[in-house]
């Protein structure tokens, strides 16, 4: 589904502050595969996501999604196939639009309705209520309230739902539970796994939680200095404890994993 080959990114090339963001990342994900991504601050995890999503053009290498070369496709064009969530729950929704309007905005675009038609139809409302009720947050009865009034967890759950209303080919989650309290984070993580499984969405999830990095999905990718330094799957992964993983990190990089939000135990989530 996703085929990344030798992806490179140099920030501010040809200047004294030139800086390597990605130095030859190759990664293949099969359709429906769910991989977690870990690494220290500045390892290049977000940069990799930005490159895939097209926030900037890469310096070299190629990105193919579902057989199509998207290396130089415009950001908003690839967004058709790529869903994205960030750490800040505010990024995924428009605060002054109501819940139903936020959903209609994305839904009417994704279903390619003529833009000068009323965006929100009666049938849509029924559909939105149904998907919202799966969140178990009571949002289905509050369709008309402004999203800015929701809590961070509710907003992030809603953003996740909206990003997958029409299931994308690829879902990029950049520490999307890091700003939430542990209980809510656990809820959103479970919801994420559930939605990805139900729609068979190929997913990359950056997480600061080593426990869920080993538990969620079927593969764990470790990044350091713009490279993938470890790619775990199968038995090797299921047998690994968070402590083992940190030891592996030390062996590979000769440093401690340094991430200000790193959580060791996955017990709560």
């Amino acid at each position: 589904m996703l085929k990344i080959n030798n992806l490179r990114k140099v920030f501010q090339p040809d200047t004294p502050s030139a800086h390597i963001g990605l130095s030859g990342v190759s990664l293949h994900l099969a359709a429906g595969e769910f991989a977690t991504v870990i690494g220290s601050n500045g390892a290049g995890k977000s940069t990799l996501f930005n490159a895939i999503a097209g926030s900037f053009l890469v310096s070299g290498g190629s990105i193919r999604l579902d057989g199509q070369d998207i290396t130089y496709q415009k950001e908003h064009v690839r967004a058709k196939n790529i869903g994205r969530l960030f750490q800040d729950p505010k990024t995924g929704t428009a605060p002054n639009l109501s819940i139903e309007e936020n959903m209609a905005l994305v839904y009417s675009k994704a279903t390619e309705r003529f833009p000068l038609r009323i965006a929100l139809r009666a049938a849509d409302i029924t559909h939105f209520k149904e998907v919202l009720s799966k969140l178990d947050m009571g949002l289905e009865d509050r369709l008309k309230i402004k999203v800015g009034l929701l809590s961070g967890g509710q907003r992030q759950a809603l953003a996740l739902l909206i990003a997958t209303l029409i299931p994308p080919k690829l879902l990029l989650l950049d520490e999307h539970t890091a700003a939430l309290d542990p209980v809510t984070a656990g809820k959103v993580t479970r919801l994420t796994a559930e939605i990805a499984t139900r729609h068979n969405i190929t997913t990359l999830m950056i997480t600061h939680n080593i426990g869920s990095a080993l538990k969620e999905g079927g593969r764990t990718i470790m990044m350091d200095e713009g490279k993938i330094v470890l790619d775990l799957a199968g038995r090797e992964r299921t047998d690994m404890t968070p402590q083992d993983l940190l030891r592996r990190y030390r062996e590979i990089t000769n440093r401690e994993m340094d991430n200000d939000r790193m959580l060791l135990s996955g017990a709560k989530e």
Binding site: H76, T91, T93, K109, A119
Partner: peptide, 26 residues
């Protein structure tokens, strides 16, 4: 009427959260 159409919602969302609009392939 316009601000309740798909295009109208995009205009309103763009003033509210431009990043979300771009992420929605608009």
């Amino acid at each position: 009427w316009f601000f309740h159409t798909g295009a109208g919602l995009r205009v309103r969302a763009a003033g509210d959260n431009a990043a979300m609009v771009r992420a929605s392939s608009i």
